[in-house]
C-alpha cells in the first residue's frame, strides 16, 4: 500500500524540484525550561532557515506552560508533530533539517524490495513460457 503513494510522487520527480515541506510551526513556552533550546533556535537559527528556504512558511507560536513542539505540514496533506522537549539548539536544528528533507510520506515497513503494478513480474502463465524464443 505504501508503494502506491510512492508511484504518484515519482511521476512528478521528472519535472522540477518541489520541496515537499510546506509550512512549519514552532510552538514554544516563554518561561519553561524544556523550551530553552527552541527559544535559542528561534533567536539564532530560525531566521536563517526562513531565508534559505523561502518556499517554506515558518510560523512561531507561543504556547504557555506546555512543552515545545514542531509541527510540519507537507504537500501531500500529511503533517508531522515532533516533540522537542529538553532538546538543545543543535538537536532542534537537525530535526528541522530532517523535516525539510523528508517527503511527508507516512513511514511504513516495505515488505518487498521491488515494486510492480502487476502482481507477477513474469506475467500470466502461458503454455509457451518454458519454450525457447523462436526468431521467425
Amino acid at each position: 500500500m505504501a508503494s502506491t503513494r510512492l508511484t504518484v510522487l515519482t511521476q512528478f520527480v521528472k519535472g522540477r524540484y518541489i520541496c515537499q515541506l510546506q509550512r512549519i510551526t514552532l510552538r514554544y513556552c516563554n518561561k519553561g525550561g524544556s523550551s530553552r533550546g527552541l527559544r535559542e533556535y528561534i533567536n539564532s537559527n530560525a531566521v536563517d532557515f526562513a531565508q534559505k528556504n523561502p518556499q517554506v512558511v515558518v510560523y512561531v507560536r507561543p504556547r504557555p506552560y506546555r512543552h515545545p513542539s514542531i509541527i510540519a505540514e507537507f504537500l501531500n496533506g500529511k503533517h508531522k508533530a515532533i516533540s522537542v522537549k529538553n532538546l538543545s539548539r543543535a538537536e532542534i536544528n537537525n530535526k528541522v533539517e530532517q523535516l525539510r528533507n523528508s517527503s511527508g510520506i507516512t513511514r511504513k515497513k516495505m515488505k518487498r524490495w521491488w515494486h510492480t503494478d502487476s502482481p507477477s513480474i513474469q506475467g500470466v502463465w502461458t503454455p509457451f513460457d518454458s519454450l525457447p524464443y523462436k526468431n521467425y
Partner: peptide, 12 residues
C-alpha cells in the same frame, strides 16, 4: 497570547 509572527524573509 494567540499572536503569530511569520518569519519569511519578505516580512522580516
Amino acid at each position: 497570547r494567540c499572536s503569530v509572527q511569520l518569519l519569511t524573509c519578505k516580512s522580516l
